[in-house]
Design a protein around this nucleic acid. Structure first.
Lengths: 165, 165
DNA sequence: CTACATGCAAATTCTTTGCATGGCG
DNA sequence: CGCCATGCAAAGAATTTGCATGTAG
């Protein structure tokens, strides 16, 4: 019984554990665990969904940790190699990074208001695995984005059309 | 009977029809239908899957149609607005465009050799529609990319590991 | 003819890099 | 201490833009 309870805790303290994992990974690579790197990482795991570079630099400076864009880029590249951060989306010429550690979310992206709705579908993931198996492909992570109009923007579009005619 | 046959032709001459559609769309917008624009479009619809800018410029020049990168960019932006070309992927700092007209493909992307395998799964698309419905989201197009190792690279990785130990 | 398109080169934006200096281990 | 990290500024790369000239309609 107690053991089961203990296991459950794992999910609760994810952030702390992640930070430890990161620290270990960094050191394993013979790299140094600096305040900047720590803070970049902290910032990322407390960010839901996506983030951009400028945003990240800002947030970190607000915490009184001096950091340059260069360092953020460099840290992100390390994190990419270590597999903590995932591939990259581009929207309006801006690169948007995504965390690969947290449970994975797919996205509905409104092309009108740019709102991003996250969702998760086990069924879709199962089918993906099936496809991969067919091609002998070993999946590491994926990205599913559905572009379209969110309900609000649909209504707006409708309203516009009505007033026209 | 004959009517049915006739209908089938529609699918056969897609490229020609697409070109007409494009021409109409351009003119409807009060824009001009220039050789450059025509060629960019032709190039795109005869390209399977993805394409990059440099590649496109090259191909068009090879057909003896002078074109500048600027024009290709400008044309692509128009095509984006008109909905002929879709959102944009970024791999290694390069933007990769995709045609939105042709049947849609999803992708398995090998992170090692960069090979891109296209696939299609109606089942996945159905589930996507279901998700959209749940959120009252009106999908226009989507992008599904699964990153991982293709079978060849898996074998290579395996071979490396064996020789190590 | 007129308004829009093109090409060039300059400007912008995002990202990477070289080098001197700072700091983790 | 030694090596790696940081910051800055400069370099690079991708994309956009201003302007003079060309051309579709």
């Amino acid at each position: 019984m107690k053991k089961t309870q203990h296991k459950k805790k794992k999910t609760r303290i994810t952030k702390r554990r992640l930070l430890e994992e990161f620290k270990r990974a960094i050191k394993n690579k013979g790299l140094k665990y600096t305040p900047q790197r720590e803070q970049v990482f902290k910032e990322i795991i407390s960010t839901k969904g996506h983030f951009e570079i400028e945003q990240m630099v800002h947030k970190i400076r607000q915490k009184n940790i001096p950091v340059s864009r260069a360092t953020v880029y460099r840290t992100l590249n390390i994190m990419k190699e270590l597999g903590f951060v995932e591939e990259v989306i581009k929207i309006n010429n801006k690169t948007i990074y995504e965390i690969s550690i947290k449970e994975h979310h797919d996205h509905l992206i409104c092309t009108s208001c740019r709102k991003i709705i996250e969702f998760q579908s086990e069924d879709i993931e199962k089918l993906q695995d099936k496809v991969c198996a067919e091609y002998g492909f070993l999946p590491k992570f994926h990205r599913l984005e559905i572009f379209g109009l969110c309900s609000k923007c649909q209504k707006k579009a409708l309203a516009r059309n009505n007033s026209k005619s």
